[in-house]
Structures are given as C-alpha cells and as structure tokens.
Design a protein around this nucleic acid. Structure first.
Lengths: 333, 333
DNA sequence: TTGTATGCGTTATCAT
DNA sequence: ATGATAACGCATACAA
C-alpha cells in the first residue's frame, strides 16, 4: 500500500489523450492546435491533474520567472514595506520573488548573489551594503539606494530634495535655528545626500544649523548628550530638528520628552522614510515620505526590461512631506 | 563584438580539465575522486567561474531546496516578523524562501498553492484564510494559526493560554470589571481561542467582563461607541481591557485618550502579538507575546522532517506576558 | 496540422 | 577509480 508519489508528466498526458508529446506541449503553451485535439488534451490534463514542471521548463528556456530580492531583513518597517511593494510589482508581471535576508552581513550578501546566479533567478534587486560585492555581468541587477557601478542601475528616492524639503518645511513653520541628526553607515550611498540637501535648504532659507553625526558604533545616547548640551535655561536652543530616519526621529522624540521639551510647541521634528504604525496607519512622526510603490515599480521595470539598451545609472524618485504630529500644522506667529 | 552570454556547464569544465563529465559531477558533489583529478577539476571550475545549474539539478533530483511562504503581506509587523524568522529557520537548513503575498485574497491564495505545486518548491508554509483551499496530498504543507485537516500540521501560539494569561494579569494588577474587544475573521482559527481563554481566566479569578465583538465589515469606530456607552459620570466602568491584537489595542488607546481616560491609571490595556516599534524596539503596549522564532522553527522543522511519519495535527507554543506601558508595573492598592 | 527526435545540464548506472 | 551513456521533463526544429 505504498502511496504513489510520482507526479504526472507530459508523456502521461499524451498517452492519456492519445496524442503526441509535442501536441500536449503546444496546448500547454497556448500554441495553435486542432480543436478536437485541444479538448482531448485539456480533458487529460484535468483528469490527471497535470502541472508543468517548471524546472524542466527553466532548463530549456533558462527563464525562471523568479527574481531575488536582497534586503537586510523584513522586520524593519522600511524594508518590509519595500519587500511588499516589490513583490506586488513582480507579481503584476507574473514573476515570483525569492526573499533573501542578509542581516547586514556582507559575506551573506555575496553568498546570496552567488546563489542567485546559479540560474535560480532571472535577476536580482538588491539593497546591499557590501562595497566589494561581486556581481556577474550576465545577470540583471538593480541596486536600491547605492550606486554599484556604471552597468548597474540604481534606484532611490530623491534624497537630496528630501533633505532640502525638510529644511524648507521647518523654515515655513517658523524655525530659525535647527539641527540635523544622523546615524548611518560610513558607506557611500544615496541616503547620505539627505545631509547635503538639508544644508542646502537651510542656506537658501537663512536657517542656521548644527549637525550631530554618529559613527557606526555609537548608540543613540550620543543624541541625548548632544541635545542636553544644547539646553540653556531649561530650553532647547533648537526650534527644529531634522532626523535622518523616522527611527532616529522616534528615539529623539523620546529623548525630548525626557528633557521636558514639548513637541511641536518648543521644537518641531521631521523624520525621513514615511514609516506608518502597523504598516498602513498613522505616521510615526512628521516625515519625508519615500515613494515606495514607485521605487518598487521602477526597480522591477528596469530589471525586466527586455532591451538591455539604455539603462539609466541612477533614478531618483520624488519624495513628499507628510504631517505626523511632530510639526505644527500651519505656521502662525 | 557580441557579448557571449552563455554560462559554462559541466561539460565545459570537463573539457577544460581534460576529464570526464561524471568526474566533474563527483567533485562538485564532494564524492570521492582521485586527488590529482580533483585539483585539476577545481582549477577548471575556478578558471571558468563555473556554477551548477540548479534547474538541471532540480530536474534530476526533484528537490529544489526552496520553500514557499504564503502570508497576506509583509507590511504588517506581525507578518513581516514571521517572514523574517521563517526565512532564518529555512536558511539554517540551507533552504531558500519564495515569498508569496496573498493580500487576504482567497483566490490568490489558491493560485499560489497551485503555482507552488508546479515543482517550484519542496514545501509550503501558509498563513491562509481560504477555508476551501485545495492543497495537493503530495506536497508538504504546514499551516499557521488554522487547522486545515488531519494531514496538515498546524502551528500556532497557545492562544487559549494567552487569553487566560491576559485575564490573570489584569486580575493580578487589581482589575475587577474588564472588557474584551475583538475584531477578526469569522473563519474558525486558532486566534479565536483567545476569547475562550480570556473568559476562562476571568471566571477563575472572579473578574466580571463584557465583550464587544466586531463583525467583518465593521470599523474601529464601533469600539469607540461601545466604550463611550460604558462611561458613567465621565469614568469608564472597565478598569481593564483585553484587546485581541496589539493593533486593536493601539486603536483603543487612541480612543481612550480621546475620552480622557488615563492609561494605565484609570484603565489598563493588554494586547496580543508582541509587536515592537521598528520591529525590535519598544512594545506598542502591554501584550501577550507570540513566540515567533519558535513558531518559525517549528514550522520549518515539521515541513522538512524526512520521515513523513507522525506529524502532530496541532502544535501550540507557549506565550509570555510583556509590560509595555499600558498596565501598571506592579499592583499596589 | 500533428508526430518524432534531439538537446538543455545534471546525476547515476553502467562498463572499463 | 574513471569514462561513457542513459535518463529527468519539456520545447522545438524538423519530418511526415
């Protein structure tokens, strides 16, 4: 009483329908075939519950209709939303998504790329941190947030404009002396431009500013020290703070609370990313929103576009400002 | 000047090394082979930058070392964390993960299952909502949070114990009259047991309670109405509220704030799931924490265990209580 | 239009 | 121990 575990193949279908192998193949692939034959084949497929073996298919065509997404993890809201939208965009084109969490591990990143190249996927979308990442010429690769060379397109938000927008918003809302708080990799990537954009915006709007840039190992307590050092007579000398991410903003909000500074009355805070509670509800803070659906769509588009021709090296997508409770709704003096 | 896009195969390696095809295969698979041969083959592999074609491999062995994860999405914190841990557990066993977001779409769920059965994956882990989901006998399937039949193991938190624990905690913290707020599918699944567990706990500890159970289409405003109706002389008659998820708890907290009820002074709130800010920081509220890493590990273990023998139909994993600011830290009268 | 035959890259079973 | 050869399931060029 052994359970028959063999799955029916095209050959079985052909035998069942009393037609040739090739005919079945044509029916399966929607190629023209005699009506009566088609019906018989379809009946046989139904009867045997036949499914094409995509591995045999892939072996022939070297197309797998699968793309790999390399991101650090899916726990962090930004990455998990990104994964969500990229999955959606891939699905729209009938592609499946292989998810590869790298946990910021550089060698893991390389391993995944190598793995992905073993003909398992048609292309890779990667948000990676390994500056020496080796990726084969032959496999389509699209990078997020970091330029990886002339032949690999990079998709990102317009981080510079985002920084600028933050400065402008703070100015619009009445700020005079602001701060920029940053933590991040020493790696050269697109999000680093938030700083320059912010400086630019401050200069343009006559805001004076100070910066606190944490090193890789530092904890958020450094921010607390920094802010504490800038309190005079119980009052923070900044009336606006731009944080490099919503996560930083959120930590800063906790610190400000501890230091008895009212937000947004005493000091207004703007973050970056556009993280929402539970993925789709309120914003955590006032923020510069990254256009995740657009980023995803662009990545997939670039990855799958047939003509390898003119792939742009860098695509920056427009960001928007969203109010999230940590800035004034309107400026009234 | 056409770019040669063909990838080297075993045959190329064999030719390069001057050995037979089979020998290369053995080297690649770590089978015993003459030392000098091995070195020559390895050199050739290195030189040609050869990678095994996993599709050809899969065609032979019908093992793909890939599992599919079916979840509604990766935007919601609970699902995205789940995906993260399952990915980790799979990786530990050298399995890759195909991510399938179903968006709660029942037909989409079925489509994914069918797709997954096309020999693309060795097994499926699914958190699904389609009561009529058809899954082939031949493919290993592990369900999360919902029993799907005698042959499909189901892994879940001990939801009943979780509900009970919530009641006990509220009792321990001095509550007398509490409420249970629930929203969820009418589908029969494990999380539904939170209610029974809570009732059970209330009875055991002499708590009186009321319930508000929303229907599928209802909005959270129903909760607001319910709570407003239970305010007497400006004071809520409940001193404790158990919410079926952290998401509900969070909405309830906003409502309570609007109704000028102090948390946890006037009323204590406990959620369920153990969602943290940014995936790994503070809890959103006091909560019953689901053991996601254990759930993931158990799912993968059950999915990949070789001997198909005695798969338990239902595995319930222990939950814990975590303080998250919406309950008192200790009970003092 | 339909059937037949070959090859995709790998593994495994043979002889050698 | 190594080399040749036959499958694996499908697609396709070619013959009927």
């Amino acid at each position: 009483m052994k359970k028959e575990t063999t799955v029916p193949t095209m050959k079985d279908v052909a035998k069942e329908a009393g037609v040739a192998l090739g005919t079945v193949s044509k029916v399966v692939n929607g190629l023209p075939v005699g009506e009566s034959y088609r019906l018989r084949v379809e009946a046989a497929i139904e009867k045997l519950n036949y499914q094409v073996n995509s591995y045999a298919q892939g072996l022939k065509s070297s197309r797998t209709y699968t793309a790999a997404l390399l991101i650090p993890n899916t726990k962090t809201p930004f990455f998990s939303s990104l994964a969500y939208y990229i999955n959606l965009s891939l699905l729209k084109r009938n592609y499946r998504m292989l998810l590869c969490s790298t946990d910021f591990d550089l060698s893991q990143e390389q391993e995944y790329v190598t793995m992905a190249q073993q003909n398992k996927v048609d292309g890779i979308i990667g948000l990676t941190y390994n500056p020496n990442l080796l990726v084969d010429e032959h496999i389509p690769f699209v990078s997020i947030d970091r330029s990886m060379g002339p032949n690999i397109p990079c998709v990102a938000s317009d981080n510079f404009a985002g920084g600028q927008l933050a400065a402008e918003k703070l100015a619009d809302l009445g700020c005079k002396h602001v701060a920029f708080l940053r933590i991040g990799s020493s790696l050269s990537n697109e999000p680093n431009k938030r700083k320059s954009g912010f400086e630019n915006g401050c200069l343009a709007r006559g805001l004076t500013y100070e910066m606190k840039i944490l090193n890789d190992g530092d904890s958020f307590e450094e921010f607390e020290k920094f802010l504490k050092d800038h309190i005079q007579n119980g009052k923070l000398i900044f009336d606006g703070i731009f944080c490099v991410t919503d996560n930083v903003a959120w930590s800063v909000l906790k610190i400000l609370d501890k230091l008895h500074q009212q937000v947004p009355e005493d000091v207004q805070v703007i973050g970056f990313d556009g993280i929402r509670m539970f993925g789709d509800q309120d914003y955590i803070c006032s923020t510069i929103v990254q256009p995740l659906p657009d980023i995803a769509e662009m990545c997939v588009e670039l990855l799958l576009q047939e003509n390898m021709m003119p792939k742009p090296p860098l695509v920056c997508l427009p960001v928007t400002y969203a109010w999230g409770g940590t800035t004034r709704e309107n400026f009234e003096e």
